[in-house]
Design a protein around this nucleic acid. Structure first.
Length: 426
DNA sequence: TCTGGGGTCCTAGGACCC
DNA sequence: TCTGGGGTCCTAGGACCC
């Protein structure tokens, strides 16, 4: 059996740990730039605040009901996430915990006796809540897809399930599948859901009765094949090693307001490159390809603003590197190539790919072999910046004015990662 | 006026090889 | 009218996730 443990309204829960006065009132958290609503407490859902909608549209409703609004505070959420996951690793052994996202993880219960499953699932939930203050839901079933089904139902019927649901018999599985619409299955998005409904497949139960070849044909080949097997209780998505290195590292941001001058974009790109290079070094890797893209502000953004055209280009380096200064140079050159005078831009980003371990970098015969000094410098910068939890040290190319920076109007303190922002009790 | 920011996997098709 | 039979690698793009 496999469990998935998922934090309830994670970002809202993090804010509430340090604001117990908000425990029962509506709370929402906004995306970067205070653009969209990306987390809602149950109370906010109840008054009709939609998910992933733009903040400005929900604003009247939010003000009417005195909803508390937070900008996203990733310092806080990242640290709280680590506490939740560490609790589970301590309880179950780290080899049995697969962190799937910032707020959820799979737990391998293959070694737990069947009659103890419910008790274990419950103690995971209780312990996480006591140790971290974060409320969670647990779904348990024979496969990952089914455990997601269980988790969703557990969360939906909190009063009955107390946020824990175990599907340990064919009958329970069948009932759960009947209560799950196709669009609520993990792996079925908007496109596939439309296609399924048109074919008369409305629930997860309907889908589980289809045959493999039908799913291969209509749901993306082997992806559909695996999904169907999982629904039928056959494990097709295995536990994965949580320490796999990223194959692409990206840092992309909307600007606080549209930008028209090339220097601001260069500063932004240099800053994003710095972030991306830090992520690269943190996984002991180096990258050989760097890509840069910019997104012009559309004249007519009412039609699909979301996938507005992004204009990009990339450079293949002679040799993989993780040194910020070696990456900033080609990144800034790419900006010069992409930028058009007179246009206004709303977003830009950097992506690093062709990632290899930095101990296996292909050497360059024509370079002196003593470039290790560069890595040493990077490590020192990383250590100082990390211990200060701030960019104390940065490259001049990143700029100091930074008038392209995103907006954060409702930011909470970084309670758990900054001494000077600790919660004070008087 | 104002609409995140990351990622993953898979497929198709083209270029190229012998 | 008829025009090999394998391969590999790469890229673009689609679909999905939180």
């Amino acid at each position: 059996m496999i469990a998935i443990l998922d934090c309830n309204s994670f970002y809202c829960s993090c804010e509430r740990v340090f604001r117990p006065d908000l425990a029962e009132s509506p709370v929402v958290v906004l995306s970067n730039n205070d653009g969209c609503i990306i987390a809602r407490s149950d109370e906010a859902k109840a008054i009709g605040v939609g998910m992933a909608g733009p903040y400005f549209k929900a604003k009247p409703l939010i003000e009417e009901h005195a909803v508390t609004v937070f900008s996203s505070n990733y310092n806080l959420y990242g640290d709280m996430s680590w506490r939740v996951m560490e609790t589970l690793r301590i309880m179950m052994g780290k080899e049995n915990v697969e962190v799937y996202s910032v707020d959820e993880c799979f737990i391998n219960l293959a070694h737990t006796p069947k009659e103890k499953i419910h008790e274990v699932a419950f103690s995971l939930k209780e312990t996480v809540e006591i140790w971290t203050g974060i409320k969670v839901s647990v779904g348990v079933a024979p496969t990952k897809v089914l455990s997601k089904v269980a988790n969703r139902l557990a969360k939906k019927n909190k009063g009955v399930t107390n946020c824990v649901l175990v599907l340990d018999s064919p009958r329970k599985i069948e009932q759960a599948l009947q209560k799950t619409l196709v669009e609520d299955i993990w792996g079925i998005g908007g496109q596939y859901a439309d296609k399924l409904r048109k074919g008369g497949v409305l629930t997860a139960f309907d889908l589980s009765k289809k045959d493999i070849s039908w799913c291969r044909k209509n749901l993306g080949g082997v992806v559909g094949d695996r999904l169907l097997r999982e629904l039928k209780g056959e494990m097709s998505k295995l536990m994965e090693n949580p320490l796999v290195e990223k194959k692409i590292i990206a840092t992309t941001r909307m600007f606080g307001s549209p930008v028209t001058d090339i220097n601001s974009i260069k500063e932004a790109i240099a800053t994003y490159t710095t972030r991306a290079a830090e992520k690269l070094r943190r996984q002991y890797c180096a990258a050989k390809t760097i890509s840069v893209f910019v997104v012009p502000k559309e004249q007519n953004y009412n039609t699909h603003f979301r996938h507005g055209p992004s204009i990009g280009s990339h450079t293949k380096l002679l040799r993989a590197t993780s040194l910020t200064n070696e990456l900033i140079k080609p990144a800034v050159s790419l900006v010069e190539k992409l930028f058009e005078v007179g246009r206004s831009y709303k977003k830009a980003g950097v992506m690093l790919s062709d990632i290899v371990f930095d101990n296996s970098i292909q050497g360059d015969l024509f370079l002196p072999n003593n470039k290790n000094g560069g890595r040493l410098l990077m490590d020192m910068m990383d250590n100082i910046n990390f211990s200060m939890r701030n960019d104390v040290l940065k490259f001049a190319a990143s700029g100091t004015a930074r008038n392209w920076k995103m907006q954060k109007n409702f930011h909470s303190p970084r309670y758990t990662t900054r001494w000077d922002e600790l919660r004070e009790v008087h």
